[in-house]
C-alpha cells in the first residue's frame, strides 16, 4: 500500500502545486475556471494515451523515446510558465488589461494538460498493472486514495492561501511559484537528457541527502515545490538557473516595455 501512496502522492503533489497556482492566478486575471474543463479532459486523454503507447514511445529514438518525450513536455511546460509570468506582469502593470481568452486557454490549459499527461501516465500504468491486472485492488486503491487525498488536501490549502492574498500580491506570488516550478521542470528535463546521454553528465556538485533525503516527506515536498535534488549535476544547476533568468527577463521585458493602451503610443504594446 505504501508503494501506491508514494507513487500517487508524488505525482499528484507536483500536479496540484501547478494547477492550484494557475487557478489562483486565473482568479487574479479575472477569469473563472472554465479552462480547467478543457485542461482536465486533455490531461486525462494525454495520460491514458501516453501510458497505452509507452512501449512504442520507449522504443523510439533508439530506446530514449521516454526521456525525449518527458523532457520535451517539461521544457514546454517551463516555456508556458514563462509565458504565464509574462502575462501576469502585464496584468500587474495594467489592472484593466484583459488577457484574450484564447491565449489564457493556450497557456493555462496547455500547462496543466501537459503536466497531467506526464504525471498521470505513471499513476495509470501502476494502477492498471498492479491494481486491476494483479487483482490487488484494495491495497493499491486505498493507497492511491490516501496519496491522492493528501495531495489534493495540500493543494486545497495552497490554493486558499494564495487566494487570501490581495490581487497584486497574489499575482506576484504566483509568478514566484511559477518561476520556481519552471526551474524545477528544467532541472528535471536536464536529468532526462543526461540519462539518455543527450546532455553531458558530470558528477554531483554537492550532496545534501543527509540534510533532506529525497525519499523523505520533506524531500518529496521540496522536490515537488522547488525541484529539489540532493545531488544535482552542473548541467542541471545551469538549466535551473537559466530557466529562472530567462523567465525573469521575460517579466522585466513585460514590465518595462508594456505601455498601457491609451497612455503614450499604445502601438508599442503589441
Amino acid at each position: 500500500m505504501t508503494d501506491a501512496v508514494v507513487i500517487v502522492l508524488r505525482e499528484v503533489l507536483e500536479a496540484m502545486l501547478l494547477i492550484c497556482m494557475l487557478m489562483a492566478s486565473s482568479t487574479a486575471m479575472g477569469y473563472r475556471f472554465r479552462w480547467m474543463a478543457l485542461a482536465l479532459l486533455l490531461g486525462v486523454c494525454g495520460a491514458t494515451a501516453y501510458a497505452l503507447r509507452l512501449e512504442q514511445i520507449s522504443m523510439a529514438f533508439e530506446g530514449f523515446g521516454q526521456e525525449i518525450v518527458n523532457s520535451t513536455l517539461l521544457i514546454a511546460i517551463a516555456v508556458l510558465l514563462a509565458a504565464h509570468n509574462f502575462l501576469a506582469v502585464k496584468q500587474l502593470k495594467d489592472s484593466k488589461y484583459r488577457i484574450p481568452y484564447g491565449l489564457l486557454l493556450l497557456v493555462f490549459a496547455g500547462t496543466v494538460s501537459m503536466a497531467m499527461t506526464r504525471e498521470g501516465a505513471e499513476i495509470y500504468l501502476y494502477g492498471y498493472s498492479y491494481g486491476v491486472l494483479a487483482d490487488n485492488m484494495s491495497s493499491v486503491f486505498s493507497g492511491g486514495a490516501i496519496g491522492m487525498g493528501i495531495g489534493l488536501s495540500i493543494g486545497t490549502f495552497f490554493y486558499y492561501a494564495l487566494k487570501s492574498l490581495p490581487r497584486n500580491k497574489r499575482l506576484i506570488t504566483c509568478c514566484v511559484v511559477s518561476l520556481v516550478l519552471a526551474a524545477g521542470m528544467m532541472g528535471q528535463a536536464a536529468l532526462y537528457l543526461s540519462q539518455a546521454d543527450l546532455l553531458p553528465s558530470q558528477g554531483a556538485l554537492w550532496d545534501t541527502s543527509n540534510v533532506f533525503s529525497e525519499s523523505s516527506l520533506v524531500g518529496e515536498l521540496l522536490h515537488a515545490a522547488i525541484g529539489y535534488e540532493a545531488s544535482p549535476s552542473l548541467t542541471q544547476v545551469l538549466l535551473y538557473l537559466g530557466s529562472i533568468l530567462t523567465s525573469l527577463l521575460a517579466m522585466f521585458a513585460a514590465w518595462f516595455l508594456y505601455r498601457k493602451p491609451g497612455s503614450g503610443d499604445a502601438g508599442d504594446a503589441r
Partner: peptide, 27 residues
C-alpha cells in the same frame, strides 16, 4: 467566493490530512 465551498473544502482537507497521515503512520 463561496463561504460554504471554502469551509467544506478546507474542513475535508483537514480531515483527510489528519486521518490519512495517522492511518498511514498506524499502517
Amino acid at each position: 467566493a463561496s463561504i460554504r465551498l471554502f469551509l467544506t473544502l478546507t474542513l475535508i482537507a483537514i480531515i483527510v490530512l489528519v486521518s490519512f497521515l495517522s492511518s498511514l503512520r498506524g499502517y
